[in-house]
Computed example of a mutant assay.
Amino acid sequence: MAKQKKLSKGQSRRIKANHEKRLSNADSAPAKSKADKWQTDNLGAPENAVVISRFGQHADIETDDGDVLRCNIRRTVKGIVCGDEVQFRRAKVSEGDLAGVIEAMHERRSQLTRPDFYDGVKVIAANIDQILMVSAVLPEFTPSIIDRYLIACEDMGIEPILVLNKIDLIDEQGLANINKILDIYRALDYQVLLVSNITGKGIDELKDTLVDKNSIFVGQSGVGKSTLVNTVLPNAEILTKEVSENSGLGQHTTTVSRLHHLPSGGNLIDSPGIREFGLWHLDVERVTWCFKEFREFIGGCRFRDCKHLNDPGCIIRQAIDEGDISQLRFDSYHRILETMADGRAGARAPRI
C-alpha cells in the first residue's frame, strides 16, 4: 500500500475550518444541541451569582439569595474560575443534575495567575483582595521565598500579607533576629503577622485581617498553612454538602479551588495546589519594578542596559551603599533573576 501523503498546511487549515463550522451549526440546531435546550422558555430571568468552584463545563455557584446550584456554562463564556461573579438563568425544570446555565461573566477586579509550561499564564482565582503568604520559623525561615511571593503580588496588583507561623517553636533571641529581617518589609509598608496555632498568639489578629475580604493562603509544605486554614474556617465542608444535596452529586475528589464563607464575614478561597508562583514568564524590567523600593531609582542609571551589579553609574547600587535599599533584598533580587533564567530554559526544553 502506498504511503499516505501528509496534508499541506493549507489543507489542514481548511479541514479545521470546516470542522469548526460543523460544530457551530450543531450548536445552533434547535433539536440537536443539548446546550440549545437552555435557550427555550425553560429558563427564568437573569440572576447574579458567585462561582464557588469550576469543574469542566459546569460550575457550582451561589446566588445572591444563598442558593447553591450546579450550572452548565455556555461555550461563549470562557475561562470561568473560582471567585468569578457571573450572570445565570435558572432552569424552571432541571436538566438532570444541572439547575441552570451561566450566560455571562462580570468584569474582574483582580485575578490570581501563575505560569504553566503547557498553557501559558493560567488564571487560578478571581476577585481576590489579598494573598496571605505563610512562612514559618521551622523548618527554615527563607526571605527569598517571601520576595518571590511579593513579586507575584505586585505584578498582579493584589495586596500581600506576610504571616510568620509557628513562633512558639523559637526562643526570644531567635524571634528577635527574624524580626530584624521582617522590619525590612514593615518599612516597605507590608503588613506582617506573627502567629502560633498552638498558643493562639496572633490568631485573632489574623481573623480580623480576613473580615470582609476575599482572601487566599499560599505557602510551601510544612509551614502550617492547612492548619491555619482549618482554624479560621472550622466549617469548611458546608458549601460542599449543600452542593451535594442540591445536585445529587458527590464531592469531586480533584484538587480544585473552592470558595468558603468565613464565620466573621468575608470569603476564603482554598486552593490546595498553590504553594508558590513561578516567575519565568516575567521580563527582567517587570521584576525590577516589582521590588517597590527600586521604583524611584529605575531609569536613573548611567547605562540603559544596566544589570544593577557592578555596572558604573548604577544608581540602585548607590542606594544600597547609602542604606536606602537593603542588601538582603538586593541579593534576593539577583538570585530570583538567576532562577527565572533557569525556568525559561525549562520552558523551552522539549517535553517528553
Results as ranks from 00 to 15, higher is better:
His252Phe: 09
Val192Gln: 01
Leu228Asn: 01
Lys225Pro: 00
Ile238Tyr: 07
Leu282Trp: 02
Thr199Arg: 05
Trp280Met: 11
Pro272Trp: 08
Gly265Asp: 11
Val232Asn: 03
Val232Ala: 10
Ile203Arg: 00
Glu245Trp: 11
Thr254Arg: 12
Val218Lys: 03
Asn230Ser: 14
Glu285His: 15
Gly250Arg: 05
Ile216Cys: 06
Gln220Thr: 00
Arg286Leu: 12
Leu259Phe: 08
Val192Leu: 02
Leu206Gly: 03
Arg258Cys: 12
Asp283Arg: 06
Glu245Pro: 07
Leu233Val: 09
Asp204Val: 06
Val192Gly: 00
Thr255Asp: 11
Asn214Val: 10
His261Leu: 15
Thr240Tyr: 11
Asn267Val: 07
Leu194Arg: 01
Phe297Arg: 01
Thr240Trp: 11
Thr288His: 14
Asp204Lys: 09
Val243Thr: 15
Asp208Thr: 07
Val256Thr: 13
Glu242Tyr: 13
Ser221Glu: 05
Lys225Tyr: 08
Asn197Tyr: 15
Arg258Asn: 13
Glu205Leu: 14
His281Ser: 14
Gly250His: 07
Gln220Arg: 03
Asp208His: 12
Ser271Val: 06
Pro263Asp: 13
Asn230Ile: 08
Leu249Ser: 13
Leu193Asn: 04
Ile203His: 01
Glu285Ile: 08
Asn246Ser: 15
Phe297Glu: 02
Leu279Asn: 04
Thr255Asn: 12
Asp283Lys: 07
Asn235Leu: 13
Phe277Trp: 01
Val256Leu: 14
Val243Gln: 15
Glu296Lys: 13
Phe277Lys: 00
Ile274Cys: 01
His261Trp: 12
Leu259Trp: 06
Ser271Arg: 01
Ser247Asn: 04
Ser226Glu: 03
